[in-house]
Structures are given as C-alpha cells and as structure tokens.
Design a protein around this nucleic acid. Structure first.
Lengths: 143, 143
DNA sequence: ATTTGTGCAAATCGTTTGCATCTGA
DNA sequence: TCAGATGCAAACGATTTGCACAAAT
C-alpha cells in the first residue's frame, strides 16, 4: 500500500513534470519517466532503458525510447553525456557536475559534491561563450 | 625547391617515426602520417582524413584510414578524443592537454598551455586508479 | 475532430571485418 | 619469399526516419 502510494505519487509528479515541459503525458512517456527518475540519479543508454521498460511490462519500441530521450533532453529533463565513442548516455541529473568513467565496465558515475574544482578557465576565444564544462575522470581497476 | 626539401624531410621524419613505432612505413601510412603531422596539431575524423588523402592524390580506402588511425593510436602517435556522440576524433597532440569544442561547427581546439587547472581530484573509488582526466569546454558563438 | 505520439521496418551513418590480392623488407 | 598491409564489399551496431495507425486533448 505504501508502494501503491509511492507509485501513484511518482506518476503524478511525472505527469506534471511532462506537462510543465510541454510534453503530452502519454502512457509511454510517463512510464519511461518513472523508470528514469524513480531510482535516483542514473546514466543510461537508450538500449538499456528499452530493456528496462520491456522488463517492466511497458512494451515501448526502441524508436520511441530514442524519440522520448531526445524530447526529454530538449525539454531540459535529461542531459546527454558524451563520454565514449559510439554510445550515447543520458544523465538524469541535469545540474552541473562531473563524471567518473570506469573503463572496461563502460560505467558512468557522478562525481559527488564539488569533487572537482576547475582552477581557472582558459581565455575564451573571441566572440564565444561557454556553454558547459565537462570533466571526465577515466578510471581503471588498479592492477 | 624549399618546398621539395620540406617534403622530403617530412617524409624522412615520418618514415623514422613509423619505424620507431614498429610500423612498416608503407605508402599509405607515410602519406597519412604526413597529412596528419605536417600541419601542426590537428583533430580529425577518419572521414575527414580520408577526404584529405583523396584530395592529395593518395587514394587510400576508408577502411585503411580507420586501420591506420587505430594502429597509430596503439603506437602512441595519436590520441582518441571522445567529445561527441557518434564520431571519433583523433588528436595529433598526445601530451596532456584539454579541449575547446565549438558547438555547431563540430570543431575541436586545443586549450593552449596550462589553461585549465584542475583544482583537486575527487576521492577515487576503492581499488581504482586514474587513467586520464579529460576536460572539454563547450563553446558557442555569443548571441 | 484534430493534433500529436507510437510502432514497425527500412534507411542511414560511422565503423569494423573477411578475404583475396598486393607489397615491402 | 612471405609476413604483413591494403582494398573492397559486405557485415555491423547505434541511431533515425517515413508512414500508417492509435491515443490524447
């Protein structure tokens, strides 16, 4: 019953979140949003989210997952993290922060708190402005 | 004539560079290496290098360009920079440094000198070691 | 009713691979 | 000679798109 409440509440939150973002709260979008936001900060690929959705008896097509992820990103609900060559990861935490990347495991982890301080920004070229600073600390298992 | 000399010299350097790296200085590899290293530090995709090669009357296949880029990378002559989702960029500057990325133009630029200082590294998770720290400062044209 | 979203399958893009053919030491 | 390199075309994985169908306002 507590679980029911949580689920309902999450559903409501998510519905509002979508509406506020100007996105129709369709079955699929609500379900995907719940998967994305009900487990803390996450970093996932479209493929992985699709698998989770199917596993959760929310059969969405992979195409819709891609569409949805991009719509969420445009709406500012997600951030794309470019860390690795071919695969795209989406980060449910949109505020400023940086990442660890575990090589070999292809795993992305938030760097907690203000873990990294950029000493000073370099001179920005003429007529340009900074959109974002990404720091990726690549890790491997100690040998 | 000055140009001839430069070309020959570059060819020689490049041949040695390849030999030292344990790579046979074949026609294609020498040509690609010259394109890569005769214009200062560069950041290019396989596709772009292939186009340059063809334009320079060095018809290599795209597959060979890919192979070559990876061999050079393994040999430590290039570095792969993961900046953007789908495309892979190779950096002819292998020493430690960071990058500007111009959004919209898909252009990668070295941050000169010690432009960026990482204040302090965050706590590294148990049993892990840092392979590399990548900093990407994303820029857009000021509006 | 109208507009917007969804699913499927086919198309695309970047990259890799298998294999027959060439080439450098 | 002959291991190693190349080219081509086909294979591939991730992502996208076109279009008929379904659902939300």
């Amino acid at each position: 019953m507590a679980i029911e409440m949580v689920t309902e509440t999450a559903g409501k939150d998510v519905t509002d979140m979508l509406r506020n973002a100007g996105l129709r709260p369709t079955r699929q979008r609500v379900s995907l949003a719940e998967l994305l936001y009900s487990k803390g900060d996450r970093h996932l690929s479209a493929e992985l989210l699709h698998e989770e959705a199917v596993a959760a008896d929310v059969p969405v097509s992979l195409a819709t997952v891609y569409n949805t992820l991009h719509q969420f990103t445009e709406a500012g609900l997600l951030r794309e993290v470019a860390i690795e060559g071919n695969k795209t990861y989406f980060d449910t935490k949109v505020s400023d922060h940086h990442h660890f990347f575990i090589e070999g495991e292809n795993k992305v982890i938030d760097i907690p708190g203000e873990g990294v301080g950029i000493g000073e920004l370099p001179a920005i070229p003429e007529g340009m402005e900074v959109v974002h600073v990404d720091v990726v600390v690549r890790l491997r298992k100690k040998s």
